[in-house]
Amino acid sequence: MKITEQIKQPIAAEMELFEKKFYEAMSSKVALLNRITFYIVKRKGKQMRPMFVFLTAKMISGGTINERSYRGASVIELIHTATLVHDDVVDDSNRRRGFFSLNALWKNKIAVLVGDFLLSKGLLLSIDHGDFDLLRIISVAVREMSEGELLQIEKARRLDITEDVYYEIIRQKTATLIAACCSLGAASVNPDSEDVEKMRRFGELIGMAFQIKDDLFDYTEDSIGKPTGIDIKEQKMTLPLIYTLNNCTKQEKKWLINSVKNHNKDKKRVKEVIAFVQNKGGLTYAEKRMGEYQQEALEILSTYPASPYKDALALMVNYVIERKI
């Protein structure tokens, strides 16, 4: 059995019901919109976000979830899908998860409007049921994701960001959404409890580890998810590169920055950069940091009683670190 199926097993029934509820949450009187939302539902990914919501909720409640858990999962999926649709427009991207993006099929104007529609559907789903605590969690996540993206754009031009700024960028860009899923799951079954903050931190730690793992793919030959060196070509600052820049001579730093800025299309030069980062211990350092986040996440889990949901969340933490894509 694949690890993702193992993780899903204790919440298989909830995930099936969630898909129906999620599709209903997107319905509209406009036929064009329904065609597009059907397309969105058909090309779903691994569905990690709702899985986090349900596993957290069931671990904390001792195995039962309620309508709020389903609404929370639907809202986060609606709003996250809206941000992805807008991202594809901003990045002028024609593909997502191997399928055509909305803007590739229906052009930018329709894609932006669909993103707005999904966002408003998510907000209304919470407001109509008085789930203001859940809405707050999600709204904070969206604000942080936008700030993280803008912070990265602001800093990336200079290529001299510190490790602290890097952590702040990935915390906002990547970790904040997983953190929202876990705190949502907790808040849906046990509002205003310390579990809400505890699980937010748990999700944040997984998100940090997830992003560092993504960074590492850039320097390994066995990467399936994306071609080696792609972040270098896009001048994205990754942890192995930041560590190397801060731990080499002035001359080496100059060569490294020049390579990333001006020679990122040169395959031979990109290979040299990858080898240099490896030799300087950039990968070892990033792996060490990733392991620290993983351990801290597992420590939070260890404070909860044994259950299949807790085991599935522990599997999820380890899957983030060991995944091949």
Rank of each mutant, 00 (worst) to 15 (best):
V75K: 00
R49F: 00
L17Y: 06
R95F: 12
I60W: 05
R68M: 08
G98E: 06
H80M: 09
F38E: 15
T37Y: 02
L33F: 15
N103F: 01
S27F: 07
K29W: 06
R49Y: 00
A57G: 04
H86R: 06
F54N: 05
S27P: 01
V53I: 05
V53L: 07
L102Y: 04
V30P: 05
G62N: 10
I36S: 06
Q47M: 15
I60M: 07
Y70E: 12
N34M: 03
D88T: 00
K44L: 09
I36A: 06
K44S: 12
A82D: 07
V89W: 05
N94G: 13
R96K: 00
V30Q: 13
S101D: 11
T64S: 14
A57P: 01
V53P: 00
L33K: 07
M48F: 15
A73F: 02
R96E: 08
I76E: 10
A57R: 01
R71L: 07
Y23N: 08
Y23C: 09
I40D: 12
T64Y: 02
V89N: 05
H80R: 07
R97E: 14
K21V: 02
R95D: 13
M51W: 02
S27E: 10
I65E: 15
G72T: 04
S61G: 05
R71D: 11
M59L: 12
H80A: 12
D87T: 04
V89T: 10
K58Y: 03
L17T: 15
V85F: 00
L78E: 11
V89Q: 06
Y23W: 05
E19H: 12
I65N: 12
S74P: 01
L84D: 12
Y39H: 10
K42S: 14
H80Q: 09
T83H: 03
A25S: 15
H86Q: 12
F54Q: 05
N94D: 11
N103Y: 03
A73E: 11
K44Y: 03
K29V: 04
R68A: 14
A31D: 15
F52T: 07
E67G: 13
R71K: 10
R96T: 01
F22H: 00
I76M: 13
T81F: 04
I40H: 04
L55C: 05
R43K: 06
A25P: 04
V53T: 04
V90E: 15
N66V: 11
K58P: 02
I60K: 14
R95S: 13
A82I: 07
K42E: 15
L84S: 05
P50L: 08
F99M: 11
V41A: 09
E67Q: 14
I76K: 07
S61R: 08
